[in-house]
Design a protein around this nucleic acid. Structure first.
Lengths: 349, 349
DNA sequence: TTGAAAGCGTTACCAG
DNA sequence: CTGGTAACGCTTTCAA
């Protein structure tokens, strides 16, 4: 295990001062080009690696941000991360990632780790309601700039980036109503989930607007763990009950896949006998048969916006930066009651 | 912008020495419990944050690893990352992530950034053949331990974790043959892609074993950019040609989705008239109609193994750690010519 | 049980 | 153009 090479080693072997070596390596102007060349060559020869820790310490400048997500193998979050990393790379920031797997305890550990690692800021999609109060408070107290992604907090001073989930829920439900569906069920997420609640609100809003009754029996709660299984279960339950809906709107595409399975098993035709709308426009949506109508969520764009906000907060100490992405419904066949089957996938270039 | 609090500040405000404060904060035994309590309280009050950079510098101990992937929103890679992060978190390592988006130049930038950031090691899935020679050499020269994921290099000293892609290709093809398909096409990846080539090799091996001809016209090349589109295009081309195959094996599930679209459009029944086998067992596989037979790739497990290897390399300076995950075919309906659905997994020998 | 001082690898400042 | 010195925030060693 050979010792790590430092400026000092280069300096010694060339009989110059450490200062000079530093200058050469940092492309300063006040140095003899000759000396500079010699130093660079020597550095290369000795496989010198710059120690960013020492530099940061000395300059009191830190170039990393922390990203905290509930789960990175979830397609949406991975696109958010992609967006963040894209911008971060351009700005020369290092991206440290932590996955909470929905555990608030783990979230806290990650935050603490990030803080002592001197991250300049944090982009976080809080794991649940509870963490909004506790863990964010930790960041606030320690004065770490942070941007909330997808799940805003209740504090008006916080900066966030999110979707208009209320309108998303509204558009989805309205679309089903306009297609002629009369009895629309909603499979939602857990009660503490802000997003799920927003979509639920939109759902109810649409029903009200069209004077349809809100039937609590048609509202089911999935627990986020296995959407597919929950979708399947609740759909069976709904379709076999006396109070049978003719359409189902689900809080995630994942749950919608379960709806498909159940419908298939019960030989119920989508969309003729059962309209389905999902949420997120995940990869599977287009591949389901029939393709799933869903609400778009461009995660990558959101990640980029989050990074921009964070940078503004870090540099200009801005706060209360807020951006709400408009909800957009992507209509495919699963919700077109009077559909003639038409494959409208685009295979451009 | 209030100044960051350091040991010195706590020491001063309590009239003790920096050493004592350090001791208190690090739970050393040789300190008066009284003093310790006072210090801890003060630290809390002043919102002290430990500076890991200074600690690392002083102790010459660094606790972060770098992970370099071609693309993180690709499901497989995101599960690999998940596996890595899981283990890393338990071992108290920070995970810094870089996405090359398949650019070898970007890969190099990321490696250089990671090196100066004193990562203890790197887990990398190289972006292409070229980078295997260039960019890995950089890591070797600077003596950074690294583990290759999914795409091994040619250097026998390197440690890696990969799948048995040859056997994967073999099993997939053999299965189709055994199902009674006679003319099996293969849609592969780019020529430089080691993995694609391995699967191709397995494909050919199976054909040979069963004395089927290898027809280069039935081998198509997708460029990794839009698998779905390529799958669609090539499938159309293949199915409309005189030399029409009765089964298609694709190097990724993504491409297989394109096969489905084309088959649907041409009203060709899967699996009766066209057997299809994909690769990766991605999320969509089960949701396609009919569900797609594919070769499993448990990314998370692979990520965990990679981290374990890396840690062994870092700590014990081990090298040439190699693990090849067995290929396992997951049989679903898309390949069952005389299908009654029976889900079972087949192991290779 | 406590403190003073050295030093990790680097850069900034000032002098020459 | 070059070099000496101090300092970044912390831990370690040695001495009290």
């Amino acid at each position: 295990m050979s010792k790590r090479i430092g400026l000092k080693d280069i300096a010694k072997s060339l009989n110059v001062s450490v200062t000079t070596v530093s200058r050469a390596l940092n492309d300063k102007f006040d140095i003899n080009p000759e000396t500079r060349k010699r130093i660079l060559a020597k550095a290369e020869e000795l496989n010198y690696r710059r120690n960013a820790y020492a530099v940061s310490l000395r300059k009191n400048e830190y170039f990393s941000i922390g990203v905290i997500l509930p789960s990175i193998d979830h397609y949406f979050f991975s696109t958010v991360l992609k967006g963040i990393m894209n911008k971060a790379h351009m700005a020369n920031y290092l991206v440290i990632v932590g996955e909470t797997t929905h555990y608030i305890q783990k979230e806290q550990e990650i935050i603490e780790q990030f803080i002592s690692h001197c991250v300049s800021g944090v982009i976080i999609s809080p794991s649940n309601q509870n963490s909004l109060t506790n863990n964010l408070e930790l960041l606030r107290r320690k004065r770490i700039p942070y941007i909330l992604v997808d799940r805003p907090s209740l504090d008006v001073n916080d900066s966030f980036v999110k979707y208009d989930d209320i309108n998303g829920g509204f558009l989805a439900t309205q679309h089903l109503i306009e297609q002629g569906f009369k009895k629309i069920a909603f499979i939602k997420g857990l009660d503490y989930c802000v997003i799920s609640n927003a979509r639920l609100e939109g759902y109810k809003k649409a029903l009200k607007k069209y004077n349809l009754p809100i039937d609590e029996d048609l509202i089911k709660t999935s627990n986020h763990m296995d959407g597919n299984a929950d979708g399947y279960l609740y759909t069976r339950q709904l379709l076999l009950s006396a109070n049978k809906p003719d359409a189902i709107f689900t809080v995630t595409d994942d749950i919608a896949t379960g709806v498909y399975s159940a419908a298939k098993e019960l030989k119920i035709n989508i969309p003729k006998d059962l309209g389905v709308v999902g949420y997120s426009d995940s990869k599977i949506a287009t591949h389901l048969d029939p393709p799933l109508t869903t609400v778009e969520q461009p995660g990558s764009e959101m990640g980029e916006q989050a990074f921009d906000f964070l940078q503004q907060t870090i540099i200009k100490n801005n706060s209360q930066l807020k951006r709400i992405f408009e909800a957009r419904l992507i209509i495919r066949e699963s919700s077109l009651k009077s559909a003639k089957l038409k494959v409208h996938k685009q295979h451009s270039n």
